[in-house]
Design a protein around this nucleic acid. Sequence first.
RNA 1: GGGGGAGUGUCCCGAGUGGCAAAGGGGGCGGAUUGUAAAUCCGCUGGCUUACGCCUUCGUAGGUUCGAGUCCUACCUCCCCCA
Length: 416
Amino acid sequence: MSAFRSPFLTEFAARGHFHQCTNQDGLDALLSKERVAGYIGFDCTAPSLHIGNLTQIMRLRLLQKGGQKPIVVVGGGTTKIGDPSGKDESRQLLTDAQIEANKVRHMEIYRRFLKFGDGPTDAIMVDNAEWLDKLQYVPFLRDIGRHFTINRMVAMDSVKLRLEREQPLTFLEFNYMIFQAYDFAELYRRYGCRLQMGGSDQWGNIVSGIDLARRTDNVELFGLTSPLITTSSGAKMGKSVSGAVWLSADMLSPYDYWQYWRNVEDADVGRFLRIFTDLPLDEIARLEALKGAEMNDAKKVLANEATALCHGRAEAERAAETSRQTFEGGGLSADLPTVEIPKDEIVNGLGVLGAFTRAGLTSSNGDARRQIAGGGLRVNDEAVTDEKLLLRAEYLREGVIKLSLGKKKHVLLKPV
RNA sequence: GGGGGAGUGUCCCGAGUGGCAAAGGGGGCGGAUUGUAAAUCCGCUGGCUUACGCCUUCGUAGGUUCGAGUCCUACCUCCCCCA
Protein backbone atom coordinates (compact mmCIF):
# COMPACT_ATOMS: atom_id res chain seq x y z
CA MET A 1 0.00 0.00 0.00
CA SER A 2 1.66 3.14 -1.21
CA ALA A 3 1.52 6.45 0.61
CA PHE A 4 -1.51 8.62 -0.05
CA ARG A 5 -1.55 12.33 -0.56
CA SER A 6 -5.06 13.02 0.61
CA PRO A 7 -5.57 13.28 4.38
CA PHE A 8 -8.66 11.15 4.20
CA LEU A 9 -7.08 8.13 2.53
CA THR A 10 -3.99 8.45 4.67
CA GLU A 11 -6.03 8.30 7.85
CA PHE A 12 -8.38 5.70 6.41
CA ALA A 13 -5.49 3.36 5.68
CA ALA A 14 -3.65 4.09 8.91
CA ARG A 15 -6.70 3.09 10.89
CA GLY A 16 -6.98 -0.24 9.15
CA HIS A 17 -9.96 0.42 6.91
CA PHE A 18 -8.27 -0.08 3.57
CA HIS A 19 -8.95 -3.26 1.67
CA GLN A 20 -9.43 -2.54 -2.02
CA CYS A 21 -9.89 0.45 -4.24
CA THR A 22 -11.03 0.54 -7.85
CA ASN A 23 -8.51 3.22 -8.78
CA GLN A 24 -6.34 4.11 -5.86
CA ASP A 25 -4.25 6.82 -7.50
CA GLY A 26 -7.19 8.32 -9.30
CA LEU A 27 -9.23 8.57 -6.13
CA ASP A 28 -6.32 9.96 -4.15
CA ALA A 29 -5.77 12.63 -6.78
CA LEU A 30 -9.44 13.52 -6.89
CA LEU A 31 -9.65 13.80 -3.11
CA SER A 32 -6.61 16.04 -3.08
CA LYS A 33 -8.01 18.29 -5.77
CA GLU A 34 -11.65 18.81 -4.84
CA ARG A 35 -14.29 18.03 -2.26
CA VAL A 36 -15.72 14.61 -2.92
CA ALA A 37 -19.08 13.28 -1.89
CA GLY A 38 -18.97 9.63 -0.84
CA TYR A 39 -21.70 7.31 0.30
CA ILE A 40 -22.41 4.11 2.13
CA GLY A 41 -25.77 2.40 1.97
CA PHE A 42 -27.47 0.84 4.96
CA ASP A 43 -30.46 -1.41 4.72
CA CYS A 44 -33.20 -1.12 7.31
CA THR A 45 -33.50 -4.77 8.21
CA ALA A 46 -33.37 -4.43 11.99
CA PRO A 47 -34.84 -2.01 14.52
CA SER A 48 -31.38 -0.77 15.42
CA LEU A 49 -27.94 -0.65 13.91
CA HIS A 50 -25.17 -2.74 15.42
CA ILE A 51 -21.41 -2.45 15.61
CA GLY A 52 -21.03 -4.13 12.24
CA ASN A 53 -22.76 -1.10 10.79
CA LEU A 54 -20.76 1.12 13.09
CA THR A 55 -17.58 0.26 11.24
CA GLN A 56 -19.22 1.75 8.16
CA ILE A 57 -20.44 4.81 10.01
CA MET A 58 -16.95 5.41 11.35
CA ARG A 59 -15.68 5.40 7.77
CA LEU A 60 -18.13 8.13 6.84
CA ARG A 61 -17.00 9.95 9.94
CA LEU A 62 -13.42 9.80 8.72
CA LEU A 63 -14.55 11.04 5.35
CA GLN A 64 -16.12 14.03 7.04
CA LYS A 65 -13.05 14.65 9.19
CA GLY A 66 -10.98 14.52 6.03
CA GLY A 67 -12.91 17.45 4.63
CA GLN A 68 -15.14 15.50 2.27
CA LYS A 69 -18.90 15.12 2.18
CA PRO A 70 -20.57 11.98 3.53
CA ILE A 71 -23.87 10.71 2.22
CA VAL A 72 -25.83 8.19 4.24
CA VAL A 73 -28.12 6.22 2.01
CA VAL A 74 -30.86 4.54 3.96
CA GLY A 75 -32.11 1.63 1.99
CA GLY A 76 -35.84 2.15 2.20
CA GLY A 77 -36.00 0.75 -1.31
CA THR A 78 -33.29 -1.91 -1.34
CA THR A 79 -34.44 -3.35 1.97
CA LYS A 80 -37.56 -4.43 0.10
CA ILE A 81 -35.34 -6.62 -2.07
CA GLY A 82 -32.87 -8.10 0.41
CA ASP A 83 -29.14 -8.27 -0.20
CA PRO A 84 -28.02 -11.85 -0.88
CA SER A 85 -24.31 -11.03 -0.38
CA GLY A 86 -22.63 -13.31 2.09
CA LYS A 87 -25.79 -15.09 3.06
CA ASP A 88 -26.95 -18.60 2.43
CA GLU A 89 -30.61 -17.94 2.92
CA SER A 90 -33.00 -15.23 1.95
CA ARG A 91 -33.92 -12.89 4.67
CA GLN A 92 -37.55 -12.84 5.52
CA LEU A 93 -39.28 -10.00 3.77
CA LEU A 94 -40.20 -7.03 5.92
CA THR A 95 -43.39 -5.06 5.56
CA ASP A 96 -43.20 -1.48 4.38
CA ALA A 97 -44.30 -0.35 7.83
CA GLN A 98 -41.47 -2.23 9.54
CA ILE A 99 -38.94 -0.83 7.11
CA GLU A 100 -40.19 2.68 7.70
CA ALA A 101 -40.09 2.26 11.48
CA ASN A 102 -36.56 0.87 11.36
CA LYS A 103 -35.47 3.67 9.09
CA VAL A 104 -36.65 6.35 11.47
CA ARG A 105 -34.75 4.73 14.31
CA HIS A 106 -31.60 4.40 12.22
CA MET A 107 -31.65 8.06 11.26
CA GLU A 108 -31.45 9.01 14.89
CA ILE A 109 -28.29 6.93 15.25
CA TYR A 110 -26.49 8.48 12.25
CA ARG A 111 -26.98 11.90 13.79
CA ARG A 112 -24.89 10.91 16.77
CA PHE A 113 -21.85 10.08 14.67
CA LEU A 114 -22.04 12.54 11.82
CA LYS A 115 -22.75 16.22 11.54
CA PHE A 116 -25.68 16.84 9.22
CA GLY A 117 -26.64 20.12 7.66
CA ASP A 118 -26.26 22.34 4.63
CA GLY A 119 -22.58 23.14 4.92
CA PRO A 120 -20.06 21.89 2.34
CA THR A 121 -18.83 19.00 4.47
CA ASP A 122 -22.07 18.40 6.32
CA ALA A 123 -23.52 14.95 5.88
CA ILE A 124 -26.78 14.37 4.12
CA MET A 125 -29.16 11.48 4.36
CA VAL A 126 -31.23 10.17 1.49
CA ASP A 127 -33.58 7.24 1.10
CA ASN A 128 -33.18 5.22 -2.08
CA ALA A 129 -36.90 4.50 -1.98
CA GLU A 130 -37.16 8.03 -3.40
CA TRP A 131 -36.11 6.77 -6.79
CA LEU A 132 -36.42 3.01 -6.58
CA ASP A 133 -40.10 3.03 -5.66
CA LYS A 134 -40.90 5.05 -8.75
CA LEU A 135 -39.18 2.80 -11.24
CA GLN A 136 -41.26 1.26 -13.93
CA TYR A 137 -40.37 -2.25 -14.88
CA VAL A 138 -40.22 -2.14 -18.63
CA PRO A 139 -38.49 1.24 -19.00
CA PHE A 140 -36.04 0.20 -16.29
CA LEU A 141 -35.23 -3.04 -18.04
CA ARG A 142 -34.65 -1.22 -21.31
CA ASP A 143 -32.54 1.60 -19.90
CA ILE A 144 -30.62 -0.15 -17.18
CA GLY A 145 -31.11 -3.87 -17.61
CA ARG A 146 -29.45 -3.87 -21.00
CA HIS A 147 -26.16 -2.90 -19.38
CA PHE A 148 -26.04 -6.04 -17.31
CA THR A 149 -25.20 -9.43 -18.71
CA ILE A 150 -26.36 -12.54 -16.98
CA ASN A 151 -22.90 -13.92 -17.59
CA ARG A 152 -21.33 -11.33 -15.32
CA MET A 153 -24.06 -11.40 -12.76
CA VAL A 154 -23.75 -15.13 -12.33
CA ALA A 155 -20.02 -14.75 -11.88
CA MET A 156 -20.47 -12.35 -8.95
CA ASP A 157 -19.50 -13.86 -5.63
CA SER A 158 -22.82 -13.01 -4.04
CA VAL A 159 -24.55 -15.08 -6.70
CA LYS A 160 -21.90 -17.65 -7.43
CA LEU A 161 -21.45 -18.72 -3.83
CA ARG A 162 -25.15 -19.18 -3.36
CA LEU A 163 -25.39 -21.29 -6.49
CA GLU A 164 -22.30 -23.32 -5.68
CA ARG A 165 -23.67 -24.19 -2.30
CA GLU A 166 -26.89 -25.22 -3.94
CA GLN A 167 -28.87 -22.69 -1.98
CA PRO A 168 -31.84 -21.11 -3.64
CA LEU A 169 -31.48 -17.57 -4.89
CA THR A 170 -34.72 -15.89 -5.81
CA PHE A 171 -35.07 -13.66 -8.81
CA LEU A 172 -35.93 -10.88 -6.39
CA GLU A 173 -32.56 -11.12 -4.65
CA PHE A 174 -30.80 -11.63 -7.95
CA ASN A 175 -31.87 -8.09 -8.78
CA TYR A 176 -30.30 -6.55 -5.71
CA MET A 177 -27.00 -5.73 -7.34
CA ILE A 178 -28.75 -3.95 -10.16
CA PHE A 179 -30.56 -1.70 -7.75
CA GLN A 180 -27.43 -0.97 -5.79
CA ALA A 181 -25.62 -0.19 -9.01
CA TYR A 182 -28.44 2.07 -10.05
CA ASP A 183 -28.28 3.82 -6.68
CA PHE A 184 -24.69 4.79 -7.26
CA ALA A 185 -25.38 6.18 -10.71
CA GLU A 186 -28.41 8.03 -9.40
CA LEU A 187 -26.46 9.50 -6.49
CA TYR A 188 -23.91 10.77 -8.95
CA ARG A 189 -26.62 12.50 -10.95
CA ARG A 190 -28.38 13.96 -7.94
CA TYR A 191 -25.49 14.87 -5.68
CA GLY A 192 -22.37 14.49 -7.77
CA CYS A 193 -21.43 11.55 -5.58
CA ARG A 194 -18.20 10.02 -6.86
CA LEU A 195 -17.33 7.48 -4.19
CA GLN A 196 -18.98 4.45 -2.67
CA MET A 197 -17.51 2.71 0.33
CA GLY A 198 -18.50 -0.57 1.91
CA GLY A 199 -17.36 -3.87 3.30
CA SER A 200 -15.30 -6.17 1.14
CA ASP A 201 -18.41 -8.23 0.45
CA GLN A 202 -19.83 -5.22 -1.37
CA TRP A 203 -17.08 -5.10 -3.98
CA GLY A 204 -19.13 -6.71 -6.70
CA ASN A 205 -22.11 -4.47 -6.13
CA ILE A 206 -19.93 -1.37 -6.05
CA VAL A 207 -18.09 -2.26 -9.23
CA SER A 208 -21.43 -2.87 -10.94
CA GLY A 209 -22.43 0.68 -10.10
CA ILE A 210 -19.17 2.05 -11.44
CA ASP A 211 -19.61 0.14 -14.70
CA LEU A 212 -23.17 1.31 -15.04
CA ALA A 213 -22.31 4.97 -14.54
CA ARG A 214 -19.51 4.74 -17.04
CA ARG A 215 -21.92 3.44 -19.64
CA THR A 216 -24.85 5.69 -18.91
CA ASP A 217 -23.10 8.90 -17.83
CA ASN A 218 -19.60 8.43 -19.14
CA VAL A 219 -18.07 9.25 -15.77
CA GLU A 220 -15.56 7.53 -13.55
CA LEU A 221 -16.85 6.71 -10.11
CA PHE A 222 -14.72 5.17 -7.36
CA GLY A 223 -15.11 2.25 -5.01
CA LEU A 224 -13.31 1.76 -1.74
CA THR A 225 -13.80 -1.28 0.44
CA SER A 226 -12.78 -2.30 3.92
CA PRO A 227 -11.88 -5.65 5.39
CA LEU A 228 -14.50 -7.56 7.28
CA ILE A 229 -13.79 -6.86 10.93
CA THR A 230 -13.48 -10.01 12.96
CA THR A 231 -12.16 -10.73 16.40
CA SER A 232 -8.66 -12.14 16.67
CA SER A 233 -10.08 -15.57 17.29
CA GLY A 234 -11.73 -15.38 13.93
CA ALA A 235 -15.32 -14.87 14.97
CA LYS A 236 -17.47 -12.25 13.37
CA MET A 237 -17.49 -9.59 16.03
CA GLY A 238 -20.58 -8.33 17.73
CA LYS A 239 -21.89 -10.64 20.39
CA SER A 240 -22.75 -9.23 23.79
CA VAL A 241 -24.46 -10.61 26.85
CA SER A 242 -27.83 -9.98 25.31
CA GLY A 243 -27.04 -10.89 21.74
CA ALA A 244 -25.99 -8.40 19.11
CA VAL A 245 -24.18 -5.24 20.09
CA TRP A 246 -26.84 -2.67 19.27
CA LEU A 247 -26.31 1.03 19.12
CA SER A 248 -29.75 1.89 20.50
CA ALA A 249 -29.87 2.26 24.26
CA ASP A 250 -33.26 0.59 24.47
CA MET A 251 -31.83 -2.55 22.88
CA LEU A 252 -28.48 -2.60 24.65
CA SER A 253 -27.87 -0.40 27.66
CA PRO A 254 -24.88 1.95 27.70
CA TYR A 255 -23.55 -0.16 30.57
CA ASP A 256 -23.67 -3.35 28.52
CA TYR A 257 -22.24 -1.49 25.54
CA TRP A 258 -19.36 -0.29 27.68
CA GLN A 259 -18.88 -3.83 28.98
CA TYR A 260 -18.72 -5.19 25.45
CA TRP A 261 -15.70 -3.03 24.68
CA ARG A 262 -14.15 -3.65 28.09
CA ASN A 263 -14.19 -7.37 27.36
CA VAL A 264 -12.63 -7.51 23.93
CA GLU A 265 -9.65 -9.78 23.49
CA ASP A 266 -6.20 -8.31 24.15
CA ALA A 267 -5.18 -8.82 20.57
CA ASP A 268 -8.06 -6.68 19.32
CA VAL A 269 -7.54 -3.61 21.46
CA GLY A 270 -5.29 -1.64 19.16
CA ARG A 271 -7.23 -2.48 16.05
CA PHE A 272 -10.52 -1.55 17.67
CA LEU A 273 -9.17 1.68 19.11
CA ARG A 274 -8.16 2.71 15.61
CA ILE A 275 -11.48 1.82 14.09
CA PHE A 276 -13.99 2.73 16.77
CA THR A 277 -12.49 5.78 18.45
CA ASP A 278 -11.11 9.15 17.39
CA LEU A 279 -8.01 8.90 19.55
CA PRO A 280 -4.78 10.01 17.87
CA LEU A 281 -2.76 7.18 16.40
CA ASP A 282 0.30 7.75 18.56
CA GLU A 283 -1.83 7.56 21.69
CA ILE A 284 -3.32 4.30 20.42
CA ALA A 285 0.15 2.94 19.73
CA ARG A 286 1.08 3.67 23.33
CA LEU A 287 -2.03 1.95 24.73
CA GLU A 288 -1.61 -1.00 22.47
CA ALA A 289 1.91 -1.58 23.72
CA LEU A 290 0.81 -2.07 27.32
CA LYS A 291 1.73 -5.45 28.73
CA GLY A 292 -0.16 -7.98 30.81
CA ALA A 293 -2.74 -6.68 33.22
CA GLU A 294 -2.03 -3.12 32.15
CA MET A 295 -3.86 -3.95 28.99
CA ASN A 296 -6.99 -3.49 31.06
CA ASP A 297 -6.32 0.24 31.13
CA ALA A 298 -6.30 0.28 27.36
CA LYS A 299 -9.59 -1.60 27.34
CA LYS A 300 -11.13 0.95 29.66
CA VAL A 301 -10.06 3.73 27.35
CA LEU A 302 -11.59 1.84 24.45
CA ALA A 303 -14.82 1.35 26.38
CA ASN A 304 -14.97 4.97 27.48
CA GLU A 305 -14.27 6.40 24.07
CA ALA A 306 -16.53 4.07 22.13
CA THR A 307 -19.39 4.52 24.57
CA ALA A 308 -18.97 8.28 24.61
CA LEU A 309 -19.29 8.40 20.83
CA CYS A 310 -22.43 6.33 20.84
CA HIS A 311 -24.24 7.36 24.01
CA GLY A 312 -22.51 10.55 25.10
CA ARG A 313 -19.71 11.27 27.55
CA ALA A 314 -22.01 11.34 30.58
CA GLU A 315 -23.39 7.86 29.92
CA ALA A 316 -19.89 6.56 29.31
CA GLU A 317 -18.73 7.86 32.66
CA ARG A 318 -21.74 6.43 34.38
CA ALA A 319 -21.10 3.02 32.84
CA ALA A 320 -17.44 3.22 33.81
CA GLU A 321 -18.32 4.07 37.38
CA THR A 322 -20.90 1.28 37.62
CA SER A 323 -18.33 -1.13 36.27
CA ARG A 324 -15.67 0.11 38.68
CA GLN A 325 -17.92 -0.38 41.70
CA THR A 326 -19.13 -3.75 40.51
CA PHE A 327 -15.83 -5.30 39.50
CA GLU A 328 -13.18 -3.42 41.41
CA GLY A 329 -14.99 -2.11 44.45
CA GLY A 330 -16.56 -5.46 45.17
CA GLY A 331 -19.56 -3.46 46.24
CA LEU A 332 -23.00 -2.64 45.17
CA SER A 333 -23.72 -0.22 42.41
CA ALA A 334 -27.20 1.20 42.29
CA ASP A 335 -26.83 1.65 38.56
CA LEU A 336 -26.91 -2.01 37.63
CA PRO A 337 -29.93 -3.26 35.73
CA THR A 338 -32.85 -3.41 38.14
CA VAL A 339 -35.94 -5.59 38.18
CA GLU A 340 -38.83 -4.57 40.38
CA ILE A 341 -40.95 -7.05 42.27
CA PRO A 342 -43.97 -6.58 44.53
CA LYS A 343 -42.96 -6.06 48.15
CA ASP A 344 -45.26 -8.87 49.35
CA GLU A 345 -43.19 -11.46 47.58
CA ILE A 346 -40.13 -10.55 49.59
CA VAL A 347 -42.11 -10.51 52.80
CA ASN A 348 -43.48 -13.97 52.05
CA GLY A 349 -40.19 -15.28 50.80
CA LEU A 350 -39.31 -15.56 47.15
CA GLY A 351 -37.80 -18.79 45.77
CA VAL A 352 -34.30 -18.32 44.33
CA LEU A 353 -35.11 -20.22 41.19
CA GLY A 354 -38.01 -17.98 40.31
CA ALA A 355 -36.09 -14.90 41.36
CA PHE A 356 -33.24 -15.51 38.91
CA THR A 357 -35.66 -16.35 36.16
CA ARG A 358 -37.71 -13.21 36.84
CA ALA A 359 -34.51 -11.20 36.70
CA GLY A 360 -33.84 -12.62 33.27
CA LEU A 361 -30.57 -14.22 34.30
CA THR A 362 -31.85 -17.75 33.81
CA SER A 363 -34.36 -18.90 31.24
CA SER A 364 -36.34 -21.30 33.40
CA ASN A 365 -36.38 -22.85 36.84
CA GLY A 366 -34.64 -25.84 35.39
CA ASP A 367 -31.93 -23.62 33.97
CA ALA A 368 -31.54 -21.94 37.36
CA ARG A 369 -31.26 -25.35 39.01
CA ARG A 370 -28.52 -26.37 36.61
CA GLN A 371 -26.66 -23.11 37.15
CA ILE A 372 -26.78 -23.68 40.90
CA ALA A 373 -25.42 -27.17 40.41
CA GLY A 374 -22.61 -25.64 38.39
CA GLY A 375 -21.92 -22.98 41.00
CA GLY A 376 -22.91 -20.13 38.72
CA LEU A 377 -25.49 -18.26 40.77
CA ARG A 378 -24.85 -15.81 43.59
CA VAL A 379 -27.06 -13.77 45.87
CA ASN A 380 -25.35 -10.71 47.30
CA ASP A 381 -22.07 -12.14 46.01
CA GLU A 382 -22.47 -15.42 47.87
CA ALA A 383 -22.82 -18.62 45.90
CA VAL A 384 -26.24 -20.25 46.04
CA THR A 385 -25.98 -23.88 47.10
CA ASP A 386 -29.57 -24.61 48.05
CA GLU A 387 -32.12 -24.38 45.31
CA LYS A 388 -34.90 -24.16 47.86
CA LEU A 389 -33.49 -20.98 49.33
CA LEU A 390 -36.11 -18.33 50.01
CA LEU A 391 -35.21 -14.69 49.56
CA ARG A 392 -36.60 -12.63 52.44
CA ALA A 393 -36.27 -9.12 53.75
CA GLU A 394 -33.04 -9.91 55.55
CA TYR A 395 -31.33 -10.28 52.17
CA LEU A 396 -31.96 -6.65 51.34
CA ARG A 397 -28.82 -4.53 51.10
CA GLU A 398 -29.49 -0.84 50.67
CA GLY A 399 -33.01 -1.75 49.65
CA VAL A 400 -32.10 -4.26 46.95
CA ILE A 401 -30.96 -7.83 46.52
CA LYS A 402 -28.07 -8.40 44.12
CA LEU A 403 -28.39 -11.44 41.89
CA SER A 404 -25.45 -12.56 39.80
CA LEU A 405 -24.91 -15.12 37.08
CA GLY A 406 -21.27 -15.82 36.57
CA LYS A 407 -18.86 -12.99 37.15
CA LYS A 408 -20.25 -10.51 34.74
CA LYS A 409 -24.00 -10.52 34.80
CA HIS A 410 -25.69 -8.76 37.67
CA VAL A 411 -29.25 -7.68 38.32
CA LEU A 412 -30.69 -5.87 41.28
CA LEU A 413 -34.01 -7.05 42.64
CA LYS A 414 -35.96 -4.19 44.06
CA PRO A 415 -39.16 -4.57 46.10
CA VAL A 416 -41.75 -1.90 45.46
C1' G B 1 -46.09 -32.92 -15.76
C1' G B 2 -42.73 -37.74 -14.79
C1' G B 3 -38.67 -39.97 -11.75
C1' G B 4 -35.29 -39.70 -7.51
C1' G B 5 -33.73 -37.53 -2.71
C1' A B 6 -34.24 -34.64 1.74
C1' G B 7 -36.75 -32.09 6.08
C1' U B 8 -34.23 -34.55 13.54
C1' G B 9 -33.58 -31.54 20.20
C1' U B 10 -37.05 -23.64 18.01
C1' C B 11 -28.88 -21.37 17.42
C1' C B 12 -26.46 -24.38 13.58
C1' C B 13 -24.50 -29.01 11.55
C1' G B 14 -25.64 -33.99 12.15
C1' A B 15 -26.13 -39.84 13.66
C1' G B 16 -30.25 -42.62 14.55
C1' U B 17 -31.68 -51.92 13.89
C1' G B 18 -39.75 -50.08 16.41
C1' G B 19 -38.36 -49.50 23.22
C1' C B 20 -35.66 -42.62 22.44
C1' A B 21 -35.45 -37.09 26.15
C1' A B 22 -32.88 -39.33 21.13
C1' A B 23 -25.15 -40.38 19.51
C1' G B 24 -21.51 -36.79 18.12
C1' G B 25 -19.75 -31.93 16.79
C1' G B 26 -19.93 -26.49 16.56
C1' G B 27 -21.88 -22.43 19.13
C1' G B 28 -23.65 -20.73 23.86
C1' C B 29 -23.63 -20.68 29.30
C1' G B 30 -21.24 -21.91 33.98
C1' G B 31 -16.79 -23.58 37.02
C1' A B 32 -11.29 -23.86 37.73
C1' U B 33 -7.04 -20.93 36.25
C1' U B 34 -6.38 -15.48 35.16
C1' G B 35 -6.25 -9.53 34.31
C1' U B 36 -13.78 -8.65 33.65
C1' A B 37 -8.26 -11.12 28.21
C1' A B 38 -6.47 -15.40 25.37
C1' A B 39 -5.20 -20.54 25.73
C1' U B 40 -6.26 -24.96 28.56
C1' C B 41 -9.15 -28.37 31.59
C1' C B 42 -14.09 -29.68 33.70
C1' G B 43 -19.52 -29.37 33.87
C1' C B 44 -24.27 -27.92 31.72
C1' U B 45 -27.12 -26.96 27.28
C1' G B 46 -36.52 -29.28 26.38
C1' G B 47 -40.55 -27.79 30.45
C1' C B 48 -42.57 -28.80 35.47
C1' U B 49 -40.85 -31.15 40.01
C1' U B 50 -37.38 -31.66 46.84
C1' A B 51 -37.86 -36.44 44.77
C1' C B 52 -40.11 -41.39 42.52
C1' G B 53 -41.85 -39.13 38.34
C1' C B 54 -44.99 -36.39 34.86
C1' C B 55 -45.42 -33.52 30.33
C1' U B 56 -43.76 -31.74 25.41
C1' U B 57 -40.35 -32.73 21.18
C1' C B 58 -37.77 -35.44 15.06
C1' G B 59 -41.83 -30.87 8.25
C1' U B 60 -47.87 -31.22 8.81
C1' A B 61 -52.21 -34.38 9.47
C1' G B 62 -53.96 -39.13 9.98
C1' G B 63 -53.09 -44.63 10.44
C1' U B 64 -50.68 -49.59 11.92
C1' U B 65 -48.61 -51.24 16.74
C1' C B 66 -48.51 -52.72 23.75
C1' G B 67 -45.05 -49.09 21.97
C1' A B 68 -43.33 -44.78 16.10
C1' G B 69 -37.89 -40.18 14.84
C1' U B 70 -37.97 -45.14 12.77
C1' C B 71 -43.45 -48.70 9.25
C1' C B 72 -48.08 -47.08 6.06
C1' U B 73 -51.26 -43.00 3.70
C1' A B 74 -52.13 -38.01 2.33
C1' C B 75 -50.36 -33.15 2.32
C1' C B 76 -46.51 -29.01 2.68
C1' U B 77 -41.51 -27.22 1.65
C1' C B 78 -36.73 -27.72 -0.59
C1' C B 79 -32.98 -30.06 -3.84
C1' C B 80 -31.50 -33.12 -8.20
C1' C B 81 -32.61 -35.54 -12.99
C1' C B 82 -36.00 -36.05 -17.20
C1' A B 83 -40.00 -33.42 -20.12
